[in-house]
Each structure stands twice: as structure tokens, then as C-alpha cells.
């Protein structure tokens, strides 16, 4: 005999409107989070799911949790996610192609099977008493009720969790602290590296800028004995910035050569 005991406690009409409006949206947002390519979009969709959940919490007489959900999750955690996304690179979008054969179908079948069984289990759960509701527990306000629970019965767990938080903060600092695994190259190292190269072309160092040139400036390439300009004589920083005069303009022209 299946007794749909949960049906006993039906909710007020406004709440059911709220649910039927927000629940499909949050499911859609969750699915979207799964399917979109860009991680930033996923993060935004997740934020939406979390805000919906916060609303559900408030609707279920969990005002304190709802606020905390918004402050901690959508405020702090999601911002942290976005921050890390910025750090790691927004455009490291990941291709949705699967490279482990057979993983995706198995995963989807298994997860849907899991969810289906879970839903089925919930649907046949029996609960031979009415839903009490929280009006009594929240008589002096939800935050007050939670505080009473936290600081009496769960005070030890609360302290442990605070220790966990501190540990996590320190752990994150330790992990985030980057130490150079290798000391900076000294002149000696650079010299050795030059001689270890395939050719000994640069063994005596790169040509200095401006040597044999018409102009003597850091942005002017040196001229090789052949009369050609040497772009390698100019700092790569200047090259990257584009603050360089085209090397070719300094090359000795053929006719000039003939004149001589």
C-alpha cells in the first residue's frame, strides 16, 4: 500500500505558483550550465540556480539560510569562481568532444538511472504523520532558532567547522604562494647556454644595437659586416611593443654598394 503521506502537507497557493515558475527555470539553468561551451556562461547560469534556491529556502521558512545562500554562494563563492576564471583564462573554453570512449553515454545513463530511482524512491516514501511546518520552531525568528541550535547542541561541531575554515584559508594561501623553482639565470649560466646552442653564431653575444648604423639608438638595428641589418640586436621588448624602426631601411642598398 502506498501512502502518499507527503500529500498531507500541501502548501499555500502562492508558494505553489512560485515553485512552478522558478523550478523549471532553475532546472533549465542547470541543464544550460551543463551544455554551454564557455565557463563564464556556466558560472552565470549557476548563479541563477543558486538565487532560485535561495528563494526556495526563504519560501520554506529558512530565511537565514536563504540570505546566507545569497551572500555566501552567489556573493562570495560565485565571485571567487569568476575571479579564478579570469585568472586561468576566460577563453580556455573546453571542447565538448569526448576523448574517453564510452564515458559519456555510460555517465548519462547511470546518472539518469540514479535520478530516476531517487525520484521513484521519494514518490513511494511513506510518512504516517502530517507535516509540522516551522511556525513553532521559528516562533522567535528563524535566525534566533538556528542560533539556539548552533550554540547549544551543535556548538562543538560549530567550533570544529571554524577551525576548518581557518585551515582552508591557510591551505589556500600555501597553495597559492608561488615560489620560483629555479633561481634566475646568472651571466655565467647565460654564457654556458650560448655555447651549448646548436650553432656558435651568437656565442659572443648578440650584436649591440646601433653598431655600424647611421643612427646610434637602442631602437636601431645593428648592421652586420655584410651590410645587412640584424633584427636580433634590438631588445625583444621593443619589438613586441612595435617601437622599432623597420630594419630594412637601414640596410645598405645595392647601388650604394656598387658606388663604393
Amino acid at each position: 500500500m502506498i501512502n502518499f503521506a507527503l500529500d498531507v502537507g500541501t502548501t499555500a497557493t502562492p508558494e505553489s505558483y512560485l515553485f512552478y515558475f522558478l523550478a523549471p527555470l532553475s532546472v533549465l539553468a542547470a541543464l544550460g550550465m551543463l551544455l554551454v561551451k564557455k565557463a563564464v556562461h556556466s558560472a552565470l547560469l549557476l548563479a541563477w540556480v543558486m538565487i532560485s534556491l535561495a528563494i526556495f529556502y526563504i519560501a520554506q521558512e529558512a530565511l537565514f539560510l536563504g540570505i546566507v545562500q545569497i551572500v555566501v554562494y552567489t556573493g562570495a563563492v560565485m565571485m571567487l569562481f569568476l575571479f579564478i576564471l579570469m585568472l586561468v583564462g576566460v577563453d580556455t573554453s573546453d571542447s565538448l568532444e569526448e576523448n574517453i570512449p564510452g564515458l559519456r553515454p555510460i555517465a548519462i545513463v547511470a546518472a539518469i538511472g540514479f535520478g530516476g530511482l531517487l525520484v521513484s524512491l521519494i514518490s513511494r516514501a511513506t510518512f504516517n504523520r502530517p507535516i509540522y511546518g516551522l511556525s513553532e520552531a521559528n516562533a522567535e525568528g528563524n535566525a534566533f532558532g538556528i542560533a539556539a541550535e548552533l550554540f547549544t547542541r551543535y556548538v562543538f561541531a560549530f567550533e570544529v567547522v571554524s577551525a576548518l575554515l581557518i585551515t582552508a584559508a591557510i591551505g589556500a594561501m600555501v597553495l597559492g604562494h608561488s615560489q620560483k623553482s629555479k633561481s634566475k639565470n646568472s651571466q655565467r649560466d647565460l654564457s654556458i647556454a650560448r655555447f651549448r646552442k646548436d650553432s656558435l653564431k651568437d656565442a659572443s653575444g648578440l650584436p649591440s644595437a646601433g653598431v655600424y648604423a647611421l643612427h646610434n639608438a637602442v631602437d636601431v638595428p645593428a648592421l652586420l659586416p655584410t651590410g645587412q641589418a640584424a633584427p636580433s640586436s634590438i631588445s625583444s621588448v621593443l619589438q613586441a611593443r612595435g617601437d622599432i624602426i623597420e630594419s630594412a631601411t637601414f640596410e645598405m642598398k645595392k647601388d650604394e654598394e656598387e658606388e663604393k
Binding site: 502518499f4 507527503l6 500529500d7 502537507g9 500541501t10 502548501t11 508558494e15 505553489s16 515553485f19 512552478y20 523550478a23 532553475s26 532546472v27 542547470a30 541543464l31 550550465m33 551543463l34 540556480v49 526556495f56 520554506q60 573546453d94 569526448e98 564515458l103 559519456r104 555517465a107 548519462i108 546518472a111 539518469i112 540514479f114 535520478g115 531517487l118 525520484v119 521519494i122 514518490s123 516514501a125 507535516i131
Partner: peptide, 24 residues
């Protein structure tokens, strides 16, 4: 509306999350 609907929603979101962990 039954309160159990929240539980169904919870189960569905959980399943979507599980799929995401494995697939993404």
C-alpha cells in the same frame, strides 16, 4: 502543491550535477 516537489527538484538538480562532473 506537495512539499515533496522540492525533493523531486533536489533529485533532478543533483542528477544534473553528477552528469556535469563526469562529462565536463
Amino acid at each position: 502543491m506537495a512539499v515533496a516537489n522540492y525533493l523531486y527538484l533536489s533529485a533532478i538538480l543533483f542528477t544534473i550535477g553528477a552528469i556535469g562532473v563526469v562529462v565536463r
